[in-house]
Amino acid sequence: MVELKTPDEIERMAVTGRFVAEVLAELRAKARIGVNLLDLEAHVRQRIALRGAVSCYWDYSPSFGRGPFRNTVCLSVNDAVLHGLPFDYALRDGDLLTMDLAVSIDGWVADAAVSTVVGTAAPEDLRLIRATEDALAAAIAVARPGNRLGDISAAVSAVAADYGYPVNNEFGGHGLGRTMHEDPHVSNVGRAGKGFRLRPGLTIAIEPWFARTTDRIVTDPDGWTLRSADGSRTAHTEHTIAITEDGPRVLTDAQGRQGDTLPA
């Protein structure tokens, strides 16, 4: 069942969204050569505790993971793209790091993800990150009352096609509000004009993620981390948005972008 939110409830989600954005920005600044993933995890735990927030990841036990997840942030490196389990690893020059964070404040959830390159960035990695950012922007642009869920999905896959990247449709975006995962599922593959009609009050997380040369994924022995099946690098960008009478509203503030001057 799709649950529409009131304007007041959307404002409460925006409070959580600002916090998520702030913490992701801090993590991006801290992600330097030699920094351990466990230090980034420790920072998030501290920030959540100080804010009185609740991690949506801690003790999460979905069917696709080997639960419970006992961390507060997903950190995925290079060919890992989703549900990255933080572990004892010091970041290296050129690593492509994706950071995904979802928390609840006063009962309302927000979810966002950013990808960044540590140290020296390869042009192809910046291009991959830029593709996810462009896909997210295109999807948000069509997230308007009267349009369809398929318009969002089609916008993501169209940008991927323009860049020449394949798209996996096993994992995508989702509704959220009082919990991290609500209806509807927001696929990164779809047909324009099809699916659930977008209405004011709908709150969803849109999350384009691409691997450079495959649409298949494999699961690490840790039971959580998802990697590209062929070892190619990956990137993931996500925002929580609300559909309003005036159009889409981003509830997780922009984190900036990399690769703006690179050709598509």
Rank of each mutant, 00 (worst) to 15 (best):
M1E: 14
V2I: 09
E3T: 14
K5N: 04
D8K: 13
D8A: 12
E11K: 15
E11L: 07
V15L: 14
A25I: 13
E26A: 12
R28W: 00
A29W: 04
A31Q: 03
R32N: 11
V35F: 00
N36M: 06
L38K: 08
L38A: 08
D39M: 13
D39W: 05
D39V: 12
L40A: 07
E41V: 05
A42L: 15
Q46T: 08
I48P: 12
I48K: 06
I48S: 06
A49I: 04
A53P: 13
Y57G: 04
Y57R: 08
D59E: 13
Y60D: 15
S61K: 10
S63E: 13
R66N: 11
P68H: 11
F69H: 06
T72V: 13
V73T: 04
D79T: 05
A80V: 01
A80M: 08
A80G: 13
L82F: 00
L82I: 01
D88A: 15
Y89H: 06
Y89V: 12
A90R: 12
A90C: 09
A90W: 02
L91I: 05
R92W: 01
G94N: 08
G94Y: 03
L96N: 03
M99P: 02
D100E: 12
S104L: 04
I105E: 00
G107A: 04
A110R: 00
D111C: 15
V117K: 13
T120Q: 15
A121D: 03
D125A: 11
L128P: 10
L128K: 00
I129H: 01
R130Q: 12
T132K: 00
T132V: 02
A137K: 14
A139Q: 04
I140A: 05
R144N: 11
G146T: 11
N147Y: 06
G150A: 15
G150S: 14
I152C: 11
S153Q: 11
S153G: 15
A158W: 02
P166E: 04
P166I: 12
P166F: 00
P166K: 00
V167Y: 00
N168L: 01
G172L: 05
R178M: 14
N188P: 11
R191A: 14
A192W: 04
L198Q: 09
T203H: 00
W209P: 00
R212G: 01
T214A: 03
I217N: 03
V218P: 06
V218K: 10
T219L: 10
P221M: 03
D222H: 09
G223K: 13
S228P: 10
G231V: 03
T237F: 02
H239L: 14
H239F: 08
T240R: 01
I243E: 00
I243C: 08
T252C: 13
G256S: 06
G256L: 10
R257S: 11
D260E: 15
D260G: 11
T261E: 05
T261N: 14
P263V: 05
